[in-house]
Amino acid sequence: MLKILGKTSSVNVRKVLWTCEEVGLDYLQEDYGSGFTSTETDAFRTLNPNAMVPVLLDDEFVLWESNSICRYLARKTGRRDLLPAEPQACAMVEHWMDWQATEFNNAWRYVFPALARKNPAFNDPKAIEAGIKEWNHCIGILEQQLQRTDAFAAGDTFTLADIVLGLSVNRWKMTPFEHPQVPAIDTWFARLSQRPAFLRHGNNGMA
């Protein structure tokens, strides 16, 4: 059985759990991270030198980086609907997954701990304002893409891109600040919310 190390309050852990359920793999999840078993140990750093969650254990195979784990799970189970074999279709899915990891997630690095976590170390009004502007800019990019597809992030069908972006948009929606109108995202988000695994791991009241 697969083992996933990471606390379920982590947005990156939840995307892996959601993917496991979409592909029909049984797994054992163990809480690691702040408030749980520490990742700051030699044993854990042997698994992931970054001391971050999630980490996937598949027998002797060890993998970290949440989007890489999601890709691995789709390929392991032959789910070409989630990660196509055809080069251009696959590139489009991975394109949006990479954007989520490099641009979209970085946009909320200051805003989320400031407004959602109420972390006193993040209390610079100008930094918060700049972060909201950048986060909403990224939301605008996704809104335009979903207007074009009128369906899912990478095209007509549900893919891994929707899993990783769905978790990020859930975090945006749940962070308290004034949000612009995004009708295409709202329609897409409602479509995701029809999936039982998303209700458990994405749109579940946790940011």
Rank of each mutant, 00 (worst) to 15 (best):
M1Y: 00
M1C: 07
L5V: 03
G6A: 12
K7Q: 13
T8H: 04
S9I: 14
S9K: 14
N12A: 10
V13R: 05
K15F: 06
V16T: 07
L17A: 08
W18H: 07
V23L: 05
G24P: 05
Y27D: 04
Q29V: 02
E30W: 05
D31G: 00
D31T: 03
Y32W: 12
Y32L: 08
Y32G: 00
G33E: 03
G35C: 07
G35L: 05
T37V: 11
S38L: 10
S38G: 07
S38N: 08
T39F: 05
T39M: 04
N48S: 09
N48H: 09
M52T: 14
V53Y: 01
V53M: 00
P54N: 09
V55D: 01
L56E: 02
D58H: 12
D59S: 11
D59G: 06
S66E: 01
L73T: 00
G78R: 12
G78E: 12
R79T: 04
R79L: 06
D81M: 14
L82R: 01
P87T: 15
Q88W: 10
A89M: 08
M92Y: 00
E94Q: 15
E94N: 11
W96K: 02
D98E: 14
W99L: 10
Q100F: 07
Q100C: 12
A101D: 03
N106K: 13
W108C: 04
R109G: 09
R109W: 04
L115P: 09
A116C: 08
K118V: 06
N119P: 01
A121L: 13
F122C: 04
N123E: 07
N123A: 14
N123S: 14
D124T: 11
K126A: 14
A127Q: 14
A130Q: 12
A130N: 12
E134S: 08
E134N: 11
W135F: 11
H137F: 13
H137M: 09
C138K: 15
I139L: 13
I139F: 04
I141V: 15
I141C: 07
L142F: 11
L142N: 01
L142Y: 10
E143D: 10
E143N: 06
Q145I: 08
Q145K: 13
R148F: 07
R148T: 15
A153H: 02
A153Q: 08
A154P: 08
G155P: 06
D156V: 09
D156E: 15
D156Q: 14
D156C: 09
F158S: 08
T159F: 03
L160R: 07
A161N: 05
I163N: 01
V164W: 01
L165S: 10
G166W: 09
L167A: 11
V169E: 04
R171W: 02
W172N: 02
K173L: 12
K173G: 00
T175A: 05
E178W: 03
H179E: 02
H179D: 03
Q181F: 05
Q181H: 11
V182W: 05
P183F: 04
A184C: 02
W188L: 03
A190V: 02
A190Q: 15
R191S: 09
L192H: 04
R195L: 11
R195D: 04
P196M: 09
H201R: 01
N204G: 08
G205Y: 08
M206F: 09
